[in-house]
Amino acid sequence: MTIETAHDPATTAAQAVERLRLAEARLARRRQTECGPSENARAAMRLILERADTGANITPTEIAQSLAISTASVTGMLDRLHAGGLIAFVANPADRRSKFVVPFDRDVDPDAIDPVTARIREFALDLPTDTAGHLAQFLDRVREVVDAECR
């Protein structure tokens, strides 16, 4: 007995998302051992840069909460980013026990931190405006499902 799979648009989209998820998992494993800062370190740098760009500050605890990792993991990761010259720490004037994490070199190109995002942005420029919006909504819904799993 042969199981036939439907080739309707919904199945095609779901299969494409599954291929993407598998590719992301493979990339995360490679980044753990082979190519520079970990996925968490890249995500932390994006957060730090985004906050700095809005004129807001971010603490190590907020980074840990945002990435859903332990503060101990964040401490080690931030120490490595600091040693690499990517971030600095400044005292929180309202609470001397806490510190803010700031980008050390504001000339750092965010695309250099994550070249995959830069390439995806290039591809997105080719999408028709109405398609880009629908695709973004679809992917946001997929992300919500993934984020909600095992919580």
Rank of each mutant, 00 (worst) to 15 (best):
E122I: 02
V17K: 07
C35D: 05
E149P: 01
R80W: 14
Q137G: 11
N57M: 11
M45C: 12
F104T: 07
D53N: 09
A118H: 04
E50G: 07
V102P: 00
P103R: 07
Q32W: 11
E50V: 05
I48E: 08
A112I: 03
V142N: 02
C35W: 11
A52V: 03
M1P: 13
L20H: 06
F104H: 10
R96L: 14
A132V: 01
T12M: 11
I87C: 12
R143F: 02
A132P: 05
T59M: 04
R31P: 00
V90L: 08
R42Y: 02
F138T: 00
P110S: 11
E4L: 15
H82I: 06
D114W: 00
R19N: 10
T11K: 09
L67D: 09
A118V: 00
A64F: 12
Q32A: 14
E18P: 01
I69F: 15
H134A: 14
D79A: 13
I58W: 05
R106P: 03
R51S: 07
S66P: 07
A124K: 03
I3C: 05
A6V: 15
A64M: 10
T59P: 00
P37I: 13
I3Y: 01
P60G: 14
F100Q: 06
A28Q: 13
N40G: 12
T71Y: 01
A136V: 07
R141L: 08
I120T: 01
R46Y: 15
R26Q: 08
E24Q: 02
E50D: 13
L78M: 15
A88S: 13
